[in-house]
Design a protein around this nucleic acid. Structure first.
Length: 311
RNA sequence: GCCUCGAUAGCUCAGUUGGUAGAGCAAGGGACUGAAAAUCCCUGUGUCAGUGGUUCGAUUCCACUUCAAGCCA
């Protein structure tokens, strides 16, 4: 059986994914599935650089702007939702285009990582937090080491989230993280994912990031955040978004407006660097230069897509 | 113009009782399976402002030059 083609366009923030993907979708009768852990949230438009209706040019976008910022969401939810979206697009006879910068989410699709149908046990997580506060993180590290020493080889003794996760998995499933990950990789992907990574000269990318942050402030990012914190009592994940937590600190008087803007720029540059580390790891990806004219990049994608080019 | 102080990593500075130097921040690289825009790990060669002098040896001491800051006029 021939697997359907699915195009994946990843790359660091501000590399030009949005406009390239929309041009591509118009060209090949495609629809876009976003792969972005922050654009999923409603009421967070400016800071996440969500495409506007005008920018979308009538191209349907999935997994954007559909979740309340007070809700939790995870890679497991994403995997399920994204595959459902892909199916819907294929049913229409259109081409699915996955677009975004969240490396973890991209991998869940292209390596077909299968997640069990479990919810996060917040009570247990709080219990672990308590142990950290009373006995220290070392205590949890030791326990985790006993449960799954193999997984702990890659986890620093300071990496609170990952140490907790090892314990959470064991508590919930009775299996180790290592065992579960082997099971999660059993099945081949259902689609032929063709992965493109959009990048450009680092200096140029940073210039674009800086400019984009200034533009966000101009467009009213501060107002957006004010409204957000007044509307939602708690935002466990959404408030972690770049730009959002910094504006909250600014509103609390932690630093001046200028300092806030510089901080957002710096954190965004660092984020872009981390994204690139993630994408470089995928040796099958085909790299595109965001400084090239859009038409050139589209032609490259089309050549690979239609099988005229393999690398 | 006088006096004082300074010039060391991209930035802010420490230091070498003379044997070519190190912190913080920035930056770069990396890890990543249910919070991922999160979380975490690793990485410090730079004409020690320039030119001369003393010395086996000067970034360190001395002289001059340039630049910057403060004070007195």
């Amino acid at each position: 059986m021939i697997k359907p083609n699915v195009i994946v366009l990843c790359g660091p923030t501000a590399s030009g994914k949005t406009s390239l993907s929309i041009e591509l979708a118009k060209r090949i009768n495609g629809e876009i599935v976003s792969c972005d852990s922050m654009q999923i949230y409603k009421d967070m438009d400016i800071g996440t650089a969500k495409p506007t209706e005008e920018e979308k040019q009538g191209i349907k976008h999935y997994l954007i702007d559909f979740l309340s910022p007070d809700k939790r969401y995870s890679v497991a939810d994403y995997k399920k939702d994204a595959e459902q979206s892909i199916e819907e697009i294929l049913k229409k006879g259109k081409v699915p285009i996955i677009v975004g910068g969240t490396g973890l989410y991209v991998n869940s699709l292209i390596y077909n990582i299968e997640f069990k149908d479990n919810k996060i046990d917040i009570e247990y997580r709080n219990k672990l937090e308590n142990i950290i506060n009373t006995e220290g993180l070392e205590k949890l590290y030791e326990i985790a080491q006993k449960i799954d020493s193999e997984a702990m080889e890659n986890i620093s003794k300071n990496d609170k989230k990952r140490i907790m996760r090892v314990l959470e998995i064991y508590n919930q499933t009775g299996k180790t993280k290592t065992e579960l990950e082997i099971e999660s990789r059993k099945n081949e992907p259902k689609y032929r994912y063709i992965v493109f990574t959009l990048d450009m000269d680092r200096e140029k990318l940073y210039e674009r990031i800086n400019k984009r942050v200034d533009l966000m402030i101009e467009k009213g990012l501060i107002k957006e955040v004010e409204k957000l914190v007044n509307t939602y009592k708690s935002m466990p994940t959404a408030i972690q978004g770049l730009g959002y937590k910094e504006v909250v600190d600014y509103l609390n008087g932690s630093y001046s407006k200028e300092e806030m803007i510089e901080k957002i720029k710096m954190e965004t540059r660092r984020y872009a660097k981390r994204q690139l580390t993630w994408f470089r790891k995928n040796k099958d990806a085909i790299w595109l230069n965001g400084l090239e004219p859009t038409i050139n990049n589209i032609n490259t994608i089309l050549e690979v897509y239609s099988g005229k080019r393999t690398s």
